[in-house]
Design a protein around this nucleic acid. Structure first.
Length: 421
RNA sequence: GUGAGCGUAGCUCAGUUGGUUAGAGCACCAGGUUGUGGCCCUGGGGGUCGUGGGUUCAAUUCCCAUCGCUCACCCCA
């Protein structure tokens, strides 16, 4: 048996209602905030991601699905969306058409990691990008949108965490201080953290080892090293979140794993999904557009993981989706009658009603059970007697009442169905 | 890449301290009025017990390998 590749999953019909529900919420909320949808290809030239995300990041270093196409070009299945959106923004000069572009997407992403709860090799993200303004109100807008969507789904166990990484100059000064502070403790750090010390010292804050966290207790804090503008922007973000009644927590240990972030970063975590608990992550990337060959342009965005959000919804049991009922199920005595009734079935379907019938040559009882299984509101029964006398038997499946209607008059039936609907 | 756990019907799982035809619930199919659902009842189909090898008179059960899945680490959505 041929099976799906490790870490990728089919989304089966039984799961589609939750997906559709979430997707509709995403489209609806983004439209409220006046964002326009953008779709980019699933793969790009590899250099877009290595330059955009950062050569030293784990994503680029060990997680990308990269291969060489027949012309010898190295291409990569997109591991995240921001670089791709920025590429499209620059390539099509969207910034020349209007100063601010507010964009959103829903798209599959690919990262070759070991799968676990809430982590897949093909997974789906939705997210927003606002390119063209450095207003911290947009930082807030991003958090607002993400929080809004999660909140509307009914999720309770979520927490917004924010931080500011400052601009490169202030961040470098801070990293220097942190390095000085940890230098003498380096030998006591865990192996992973010693590696982080050399590679990306900020990531030591992510360590799950108690002793590492103890050693960090009196470490210098990044917010004390912010430049004036980052600081006042961050203050604005906080006060505005308060005014919007969005609960949040400042987490100075929140350092995101992509190189392009500047100033505000944020994350929304869930307490109900296991170890991979970030439902959403984002921040400002004021230098990325320039770095990818565009005019210097500020931007801010976020991405959220659909599978993780649905996992949280499932675990918190908050998605009560309406049953998918059909309107009419035709119960027809034999194959001849099915052929006779098929045009009527077609007419009802064309008129917008959900209609089905048996194609398996099954007994009347089995057809009725099928009608029940699909929660059909009505059954239209046509047997030999009815057909001979030009009638059909309409049964209301809720109360069991039956009555006779003339056969062969689609218009009258449709009119009646519209009335009772 | 590292570590741990698990692989028995479509699904969730029992079971065999090695021994004849491997079970349950749900799902599926057929019946319980000759042409009528939900509840209930009866019956039925479906598994080479992940795969390969070893030990043994005998393996689904023990051993080894392999593949797959799951969870965790790393990192991230």
């Amino acid at each position: 048996m041929i099976k799906a590749i490790t870490g990728i999953k089919d989304i089966l019909p039984s799961e589609i209602p939750s997906w559709s529900h979430l997707e509709e919420a995403i489209h609806s909320v983004f439209k409220n905030y006046n964002y326009k949808e953008i779709r980019t290809p699933v793969f790009e030239e590899t250099t877009l991601f290595s330059r955009g995300i950062g050569e030293e990041t784990d994503i680029v270093g060990k997680e990308m699905y990269t291969f060489t196409d027949r012309s010898g070009t190295s291409v990569t299945l997109k591991p995240e969306m921001t670089a791709a959106v920025v590429r499209a923004y620059v390539e099509h000069s969207l910034g020349k058409q209007q100063p601010l572009n507010k964009l959103y997407y829903i798209s599959p992403m690919f990262r070759q990691e070991r799968p676990q709860a809430g982590r897949l090799r093909q997974f789906h993200q939705f997210g927003g990008e606002a390119i063209g303004s450095s207003s911290p109100l947009l930082d807030v807008e991003m958090i607002d949108i993400a929080y809004n969507i999660l909140n509307n789904l009914g999720l309770k166990d979520i927490l917004v965490k924010i931080n500011s990484l400052g601009i490169p100059g202030s961040r470098e000064r801070y990293k220097e201080e942190l390095r000085n502070y940890l230098a003498e403790k380096k030998e006591m750090l865990s192996e992973d953290s010693r590696r982080r010390f050399d590679k990306n010292i900020l990531r030591i804050f992510d360590s799950k080892i108690d002793n590492d966290q103890n050693l960090l207790k009196d470490a210098p804090l990044i917010l004390d090293y912010l430049d004036d503008e980052s600081k006042s922007d961050f203050d604005m973000v906080q006060s505005m979140l308060e005014r919007l009644n969005i609960p949040f927590e400042i987490d100075q240990r929140l350092v995101r794993g992509l190189d392009y972030y500047t100033k505000t970063t944020f994350e929304i975590i869930s307490g109900s999904v296991g170890s991979q608990n970030a439902l959403c992550g984002g921040g400002r990337y004021d230098l990325l557009i320039e770095q990818l060959g565009g005019e210097p342009t500020p931007g801010v965005g976020f991405a959220a993981g659909i599978e993780r959000i649905l996992l949280a919804c499932e675990n918190e049991n908050v998605l009560n989706l309406p049953e998918d009922k059909i309107d009419v199920y035709f119960v027809l005595l034999d194959n001849e009658l099915k052929i006779e009734a098929f045009e009527l079935v077609h007419n009802l379907r064309s008129a917008g009603f959900k209609v089905d019938l048996d194609y398996m040559d099954r007994s009347v009882k089995a057809q009725m059970r099928e009608a029940n299984k699909y929660s059909s509101r009505f059954v239209i029964f046509i047997g030999g007697e009815e057909y001979a006398s030009g009638k059909m038997n309409v049964k209301n499946m809720q109360d069991g009442n039956q009555f006779i209607m003339p056969l062969g008059n689609s218009e009258e039936l449709i009119k009646w169905l519209v009335e009772v609907k």
